[in-house]
Amino acid sequence: MSHPKFIHYTFTGADASKFLQGQVTLHVERLTENSTQYTAICDLKGRVHFGLWLTKHNAEQFDIVVVEDQKEDFSSHIKKYAAFAKAALVEVGEVFPHVHENNTIFLSATSDIQLWQEHVIEHGQAWISQATEHLFQPQELRLHQRNGVHYDKGCYLGQEIIARLWFKAQPKQWLHLVKSTQEIPNAGNKIEGNIQIVNMIQTKNNEYIALIIAKPTTLEETSFLEVIELPSPLNEDVARAK
C-alpha cells in the first residue's frame, strides 16, 4: 500500500492575501497567523479540486502544502489565475506530516506516514488527492466543521453553488468514519450502495478504517462496515441549523 507524499510551496507578494481570498473556501483575512489550516480550492461546480494545508505568516507570506500527485495541476492553476497578481508561487520541496495538538503540521524531518494516516482518518480529517478531486462538495466533507469553509466571505471559485447548498438546501450524503475486517478499496472507488471512499488505511492490527461519503440510510443497510462516531464537532449535523 503506497502512502501519500506532500509538497511545500511558498506564496508571497503584495497581493498574496487578496489572491488567496478569491481562491480558497476559508476567510484568509481571519486566518490565525502561524497556524496551519486545511482548506480547499473548488471548481466552478462547487466541488473540491485541490485540498491544501495553508499557513499564513502575514498578509504577504504564506506556506501551502498539497499532496504530491496534485502538484503539477495545482502549480499550473495558481500561475494561471495569478498571472497578473503581485505574488509568486515557489516550490520548496517534500515535507512530512506530523500531528501537533490534533492538527497536521509539516516539517522537513521524516515521520511515520502510516501513523499519521491512521490518526487523521480516525479524527475525520479528510484530505483530497488526485483520485478524489472534483468528486465532493466541501459541506459533504464536513470541511466547514473544521474551519476550512466560511460562508460569510466574498466571492471565490464555486462560491455561488456552495453558498446556495448551504443556505437553501442540505446535502443528501456526507462524511462518515467506518471500519471493517474486510478490505476497503482505495480512495475514489465506490462500494455497495454508492458509498464512495475518500481516504482509507489498513491498520497494524489488520483492520481497515476509512472516511467515506454516504447516505446514512445506505450505511444502515451495509453489512460489512461498522460506523464509528467521529470526534466533536464532526459528529454534529452537517446541515445548517434552521
Rank of each mutant, 00 (worst) to 15 (best):
2 S>V: 13
3 H>M: 15
4 P>I: 10
7 I>Y: 00
7 I>W: 01
9 Y>S: 01
12 T>N: 13
18 K>C: 00
19 F>V: 02
19 F>L: 10
19 F>E: 03
23 Q>I: 04
26 L>I: 13
32 T>C: 10
38 Y>G: 12
48 V>P: 04
51 G>C: 02
53 W>C: 07
59 A>G: 01
61 Q>P: 01
65 V>N: 02
66 V>T: 06
71 K>W: 00
72 E>D: 07
75 S>E: 11
79 K>Q: 09
80 K>G: 00
83 A>D: 00
86 K>H: 00
93 G>H: 00
95 V>E: 04
96 F>Y: 15
96 F>P: 06
99 V>S: 04
100 H>I: 14
100 H>A: 15
101 E>L: 13
103 N>A: 15
104 T>Q: 07
106 F>L: 08
107 L>G: 01
107 L>A: 04
108 S>E: 14
114 Q>P: 00
116 W>D: 08
123 H>A: 00
124 G>T: 07
131 A>F: 09
135 L>T: 02
137 Q>E: 13
137 Q>V: 15
138 P>R: 09
138 P>C: 09
142 R>F: 11
143 L>I: 11
147 N>D: 14
155 C>H: 05
155 C>A: 06
159 Q>T: 12
159 Q>R: 08
160 E>I: 12
161 I>N: 10
164 R>T: 14
166 W>F: 15
173 Q>R: 14
174 W>P: 05
176 H>G: 09
176 H>K: 05
177 L>H: 14
177 L>W: 08
178 V>T: 10
179 K>N: 12
181 T>Y: 04
182 Q>M: 03
182 Q>T: 09
182 Q>A: 12
183 E>T: 14
188 G>V: 09
188 G>K: 07
188 G>Q: 06
193 G>F: 03
196 Q>S: 12
198 V>P: 02
199 N>A: 09
204 K>F: 03
206 N>D: 15
208 Y>P: 05
208 Y>D: 07
212 I>H: 03
213 I>V: 15
216 P>L: 04
220 E>Q: 05
221 E>T: 05
224 F>Q: 13
225 L>K: 02
226 E>N: 13
234 L>K: 04
237 D>Y: 02
240 R>W: 04
